[in-house]
């Protein structure tokens, strides 16, 4: 059975099972039954919307944060800003790796293979590699000031290229991802906003976890740099 990416299937074949797996207690009071976008290739794995997608949202937020601090470093020249920017890239790379890994798992059982030749996937992989290069670049420079300056400039360029690869190019061509290449995004699947009710809190939660990890990394780094300067 082929299901086109833009097709929202309202099959009733499994509707009894759907009712059985979604108990009415979960439902918001005014709805008689909890509903979620139902498609043949997705089924219950639509719930990955709360895990796979926020990984990329959190990554993007943290990368924007990192760029802001890189620009601030170039303006003011405070080494703390450089530490914040570099630790942010570390956490963002963790989210990127998790986003790729969860995406591959999800793709295996929905699109049929872990890595279909999709522009969004390839773009995301290139984006993650660009930020790995940032880490390598920092590792290759020993002088603290030079390292901070060069990597801050690189970081500003990196976010531009990352945005280009992950948001713009997939929209210009065909993509399996919702919201890209003429595919419908949320609004088409999520007719009664039930997914949004859980999705946006999930984005906030995962981002907050990311910023917490980031703050731990920064505090350790500050202690390390204080130690080495003594």
């Amino acid at each position: 059975m082929t299901v086109f990416p833009s097709q929202v299937a309202d099959s009733t074949a499994d509707s009894t099972q759907i009712k059985a797996t979604c108990s009415p207690e979960v439902a918001v009071a005014k709805f008689s039954q909890f509903a979620f976008p139902y498609r043949e290739i997705l089924y219950q794995s639509i719930r990955n919307t709360f895990y796979h997608v926020p990984m990329w949202f959190a990554m993007m937020l943290i990368l924007i944060f990192s760029t802001v601090y890189s620009v601030r470093y170039l303006n003011k020249g405070r080494i703390e800003d450089d530490i914040l920017a570099s630790q942010a890239v570390n956490v963002a790379l963790m989210f990127g790796a998790l986003g790729l890994a969860t995406g591959m798992t999800w793709a295996t059982y929905t699109w049929g293979e872990p890595w279909p030749n999709d522009p969004k996937l390839n773009g995301a992989a290139v984006g993650v590699i660009i930020y790995m290069a940032y880490i390598v670049l920092r590792g290759s420079l020993t002088d603290e000031i030079k390292r901070a300056k060069i990597s801050a400039v690189y970081n500003v360029f990196a976010i531009v290229i990352f945005t280009l690869f992950i948001f713009i190019i997939p929209r210009l061509t065909d993509s399996l991802h919702p919201g890209n290449g003429g595919n419908p995004a949320f609004s088409k699947y999520d007719l009664d906003s039930h997914l949004r009710l859980f999705f946006y809190p999930a984005v906030i939660g995962w981002s907050m976890l990311g910023f917490w990890l980031l703050s731990i990394g920064v505090r350790i780094k500050l202690l390390e740099s204080k130690k080495s300067s003594q």
Binding site: S45, L98, A101, T102
Partner: peptide, 26 residues
């Protein structure tokens, strides 16, 4: 099986493992 529910379980396991590994590196 179970309308692909275990795909969600696998994703959760991956995320938990990833964050745990990151915390170990910290």
């Amino acid at each position: 099986s179970h309308l692909k529910m275990y795909v969600v379980v696998a994703v959760l396991v991956i995320i938990f493992a990833g964050i745990t590994l990151f915390l170990f590196s910290l």
